[in-house]
Computed example of a mutant assay.
Amino acid sequence: MNNQTLLAFIIIISLIFTSACGQKELSIEPKKLDWKQRVIKVNEDSSLLSGSSYLSVYSAVYLHSESDFKELSSTVSIRNINKQDTIYINKIEYFNTQGQLVKSFLENSIYIAPMETVEIVIELSDTEGGTGANFVFDWSIKPDSNEPLFEAVMISAVGNKGFGFVTHGKKIN
């Protein structure tokens, strides 16, 4: 049996198996984030606590040498891990490897509802950040609330092998 015949056989068997088990294909529509719909006025004189967090991301990684690198796509997650309290993100800045500001994502503070996640996607074709790209987030929370959680998932593929890794945010002064 040649490779094409084997591939066709595997596809047919998986379709039959899926139909027999009554499973439906999972369909998730990507949701484009409208920052303007999340704008909120954060009163600076309030009792909110403020902080900043750092998150490393990679637009590319070196494979075998400095001249051999692979582009990555990144999904940056901003998570409100509070069950009751809203959190506020006041600034999101994206810097490249040289420390230069690439993009500022917010003109005004935004809210993130309890247990909600807001995502930023850095596409595979966007290599402006480079191998040492990073984000800095300024945020505000109620005094007894949990700080926001910042994570990035970077993925890519080389040939028929995919790879991915995760980074976690760190509170900074």
Rank of each mutant, 00 (worst) to 15 (best):
N108P: 04
I11G: 00
I13N: 06
V121L: 10
S27W: 07
F17W: 14
K36D: 13
S73K: 04
E71F: 07
S73R: 05
E93I: 08
S14F: 14
R79T: 12
G129L: 04
F105R: 06
E123L: 09
C21G: 06
E66R: 11
N108R: 13
S73H: 08
K83G: 12
F9E: 12
A20H: 13
W35C: 01
T18A: 15
T127K: 08
V57P: 00
I87W: 02
R79V: 13
V57C: 04
K91P: 00
Y58I: 01
S125A: 12
N96T: 05
F95H: 03
Q84F: 12
P114L: 05
L124W: 03
T117V: 14
T75Q: 14
D138C: 05
L26H: 08
F95P: 00
S104G: 11
W35D: 02
I112V: 14
W35I: 15
A60L: 10
Y111A: 07
Q98H: 08
N96I: 05
E123M: 08
Y58C: 11
E71T: 09
S140Y: 02
F9H: 11
R79K: 13
A113N: 13
I141V: 12
I10M: 09
N96E: 06
F69G: 00
S125W: 08
Q98L: 12
S77K: 04
C21H: 05
L55H: 01
V118K: 09
F69C: 01
Q100T: 03
D34A: 12
N90E: 13
C21E: 06
A113R: 13
I81M: 14
D85M: 05
I40C: 10
R38C: 06
M115G: 00
L55W: 01
Y94V: 03
P30I: 06
L15M: 15
L33E: 02
P30K: 09
G51Y: 08
K91T: 07
I110N: 00
T18Y: 05
S109C: 09
L15I: 12
W35T: 07
I10D: 08
F137V: 15
N80M: 10
Q100I: 07
V57D: 00
D68F: 03
V121G: 00
S125Y: 07
E107W: 02
A113I: 08
G99T: 06
L33M: 09
N134K: 03
A133T: 02
L33F: 04
V42A: 11
E119F: 01
N82G: 03
T18Q: 14
S14R: 11
K32A: 15
K41Y: 12
Q98F: 08
D138S: 15
I120Y: 09
S77R: 07
G22C: 09
V76L: 09
